[in-house]
């Protein structure tokens, strides 16, 4: 379902929602955003394991903000000074709790918005859409695509170099800088070879291009964008 939405429209709508959400933090509407994204992701058959991998640290971050604001925030200080003195301290703490809940849930809303894009978008389609809808220059777009597709190769290179160091009797820990530096040296070499390879294959920096993937903007894309932005605006207006 979400996989068919145009990637550029999807990104802009999600970005707009994230920016708008920053202006207000009612717990209720942040929850609506979380549920909206969750339902769309479940309908798009995303990998549940990927979802959980992101959810666990997001939960910790949301909890930490919640507790820090609830316990240490502006209100709590005055509350402690008037400890046990009835109405003033209590209302102060109450507003602290709802602030904390709102900010904590907003953290969650951000995480879900990010996942809605990351887990339902194909990297090639995204790049083609950037070139066709946003008129990004092909030399940038293909540069980004090349870098993205080079990442697994860099990771493999890094683990091989670590192994090579261990064979030679160096102690290698996850924080060892030497193998990381060697991997970077090779990576910088590749970027030069890659540029040469692209040019020798006839890649022109300024030439007109045709695309084998034709990315279109459909009415459904606007329905999604309007719905998401409407929810974010409702949150700010505290409807």
């Amino acid at each position: 379902m979400m996989r068919k939405i145009n990637p550029t429209v999807k990104l802009l709508a999600i970005l707009a929602a994230a920016v708008i959400t920053a202006f207000g933090f009612t717990a209720k509407w942040n929850l609506v955003i979380v549920l909206f994204c969750l339902v769309l992701m479940l309908f798009s058959k995303v990998n549940i394991r990927h979802l959980l991998v992101v959810m666990i640290p997001a939960t910790l971050a949301a909890l930490s903000l919640f507790f820090a604001i609830w316990l240490n925030g502006k209100g709590a200080g005055t509350g402690a000074a008037y400890s046990g003195s009835g109405f003033y301290a209590q209302t102060n703490n109450a507003s602290n709790l709802s602030d904390a809940l709102g900010v904590g849930l907003r953290m969650y809303a951000y995480a879900f918005l990010g996942m809605l894009f990351a887990l339902t978008t194909d990297s090639s389609e995204f790049i083609y859409s950037l070139m066709q809808q946003l008129k990004v220059k092909p030399k940038f777009a293909y540069g980004v695509l090349a870098a993205f597709h080079l990442l697994p190769v860099i990771r493999r290179e890094y683990s091989q170099i670590r192994l090579a160091y261990r064979v030679r009797g160096y102690r290698v820990t996850p924080l060892s800088l030497r193998p990381a530096f060697s991997a970077l040296v090779n990576t910088m070499h590749w970027s030069e070879s890659l540029a040469m390879a692209m040019e020798s294959k006839g890649f022109e920096e300024e030439g007109e291009r045709t695309f084998y993937l034709d990315m279109k903007v459909r009415p459904m894309d606007f329905v999604f964008a309007a719905a998401l932005i409407a929810i974010a605006v409702c949150g700010v207006l505290r409807v």
Binding site: V19, A22, V54, P57, A109, Y110, L113, G114, A118, F126
Partner: peptide, 16 residues
Amino acid sequence: LIEVLLGNYFGPGVII
């Protein structure tokens, strides 16, 4: 952007 695509839980706001 690449961080968001790989799954940063701070979401799309990271791009800004």
